[in-house]
């Protein structure tokens, strides 16, 4: 039992690391990410919405990275769990890639 858990933990750690590397290299599809961000996040994170209005330029790249590294701590973690790994990479590519200190800050949401 403990052994199994250990293996799972190792796999988990490995997965986080892989996603982390992929994120840093910008492997996600930012175009798809923009669409997914609108569809999945902007339902609430919108002007006069139930959560804080968000766009890529709301945060720095470092701040976005903290969010993506800690999605389980977010209030909307259940929403995050619905997303596939690829979806998260894509959303990351959009938000991180167009963050306010990024080389190409987003003009619109």
């Amino acid at each position: 039992m403990t052994k199994k858990l250990g293996v799972a933990a190792i796999i988990m750690v490995f997965m986080v690391v892989t996603i982390g590397v992929a994120m840093a290299e910008g492997k996600g599809n930012a175009r798809k990410g923009k669409y997914l961000f609108r569809k999945s996040c902007r339902t609430c994170h919108i002007e006069d919405g139930s959560a804080k209005d968000l766009s890529p330029v709301s945060k720095t790249q470092a701040d976005w990275q903290i969010i993506f590294d800690n999605t389980s701590k977010l209030q909307c973690k259940e929403e995050w769990e619905k997303l596939s790994e690829k979806d998260i990479l894509d959303i990351h590519a959009h938000l991180w890639g167009h963050a306010f200190d990024s080389p190409s800050p987003a003009k619109c949401k």
């Binding site: 599809n29 930012a30 175009r31 798809k32 669409y35 997914l36 609108r38 890639g97 167009h98 080389p103 190409s104 987003a106 003009k107």
Partner: peptide
């Protein structure tokens, strides 16, 4: 806007300059 799955991943001019403005 909808997303078109068959679209290529990036702009046609992507990668031709070191730091192009996406928009």
């Amino acid at each position: 806007a909808p997303f078109y799955e068959d679209n290529p991943d990036d702009r046609v001019d992507a990668g031709r300059a070191q730091m192009m403005f996406d928009e």
